[in-house]
């Protein structure tokens, strides 16, 4: 008798907790300002602890990463990678420049991303759990950063700002399936829609590229910057590594490897460009 009463009570507790969780989730999805404020307040209050903890534990994580990733060459490797990314980005831009000139009359009004004002920020936290595709940077609204602004490295596009506090911002990476970008292929000039597929998977263009379009291996992919685009035009994104037909054979499905190494970002640039409303 007592056992069944306890069992009933624990089921009631479970139902109550699940209902509360779902209510909180719903409020968050509906953009509740109360939830947002509480989260920002807690996150801001906790950030000094996290910063201190990260500093304190950095020898341990360095040793661990050294064990698994040859840490003695890590710094050198990072420097060389940054240089390589800059060079890749430059080469990609050069390749696209010819196409840009040809299309310049039609693309009038589109600004090159390198001419846009930007804020350089350092990455202070990567994804904290296995279920995130976000980064946190050390610059926020005091530097003019707003939600929706694109984020790049020397190599190209890496994501978009999704949350801003005074001195911190959260960036959603391109690998997140929620990020959709209008893109253009360098060789054909065809435009399509690119999105992520989650951790450990390449990006994919699965809309807009018709089957007859020839897509060479390693064809460069840039943001299209077309009307009402969420990113400015001509930002290098990646290169095509595979081209297949969709199941209904009505469009091509292109696998795209990002130019920027999204797993090892240390410095990024937030472009002070807001998508049109």
């Amino acid at each position: 008798m007592a056992l069944s009463r306890r069992s009933g009570r624990s089921r009631f507790t479970l139902a109550l907790l699940l209902l509360t969780s779902i209510t909180v989730l719903t409020l968050d999805f509906r953009g509740s300002s109360a939830i947002h404020s509480i989260r920002n307040a807690v996150s801001s209050a906790f950030s000094p602890v996290r910063d201190g903890g990260s500093r304190a534990f950095s020898p341990v994580s360095n040793a661990w990463n050294g064990l698994w990733h040859y840490g003695d060459v890590k710094n050198e490797n990072d420097r060389l990678r940054a240089q390589l990314e800059d060079a890749q980005g430059q080469a990609a831009q050069n390749e696209d420049a010819k196409k840009q000139l040809e299309a310049i009359s039609q693309l009038e009004g589109i600004t090159q991303f390198t001419q846009l004002p930007s804020v350089t920020a350092s990455v202070i936290a990567g994804p904290l759990t296995n279920f995130e595709h976000t980064l946190e940077i050390d610059r926020g609204s005091t530097k003019g950063i707003k939600v929706g602004m694109p984020v790049v490295t020397g190599a190209g596009l890496i994501g978009r700002v999704v949350d801003v506090q005074a001195n911190r911002s959260v960036i959603k990476l391109l690998t997140d399936p929620d990020i959709v970008a209008g893109v253009r292929l360098a060789t054909s000039g065809e435009t399509g829609l690119l999105h992520g597929q989650g951790d450990g998977k390449p990006l994919v263009i699965d809309a807009g590229i018709d089957p007859p379009v020839k897509v060479p291996q390693d064809d460069m992919v840039f943001t299209s910057g077309e009307d009402r685009a969420t990113f400015p035009g001509a930002i290098p994104v990646g290169h095509v590594t595979q081209a297949d037909l969709s199941a209904d054979r009505l469009t091509q499905v292109l696998t795209v490897t990002p130019l920027a190494d999204l797993g090892r970002l240390t410095f990024v640039k937030v472009l002070l460009w807001e998508p049109p409303q």
Partner: peptide, 12 residues
């Protein structure tokens, strides 16, 4: 409340 990439209530 501390992480930034998942909706509030997800881990709860």
């Amino acid at each position: 409340l501390v992480v930034h990439g998942t909706p509030t209530g997800f881990f709860a």
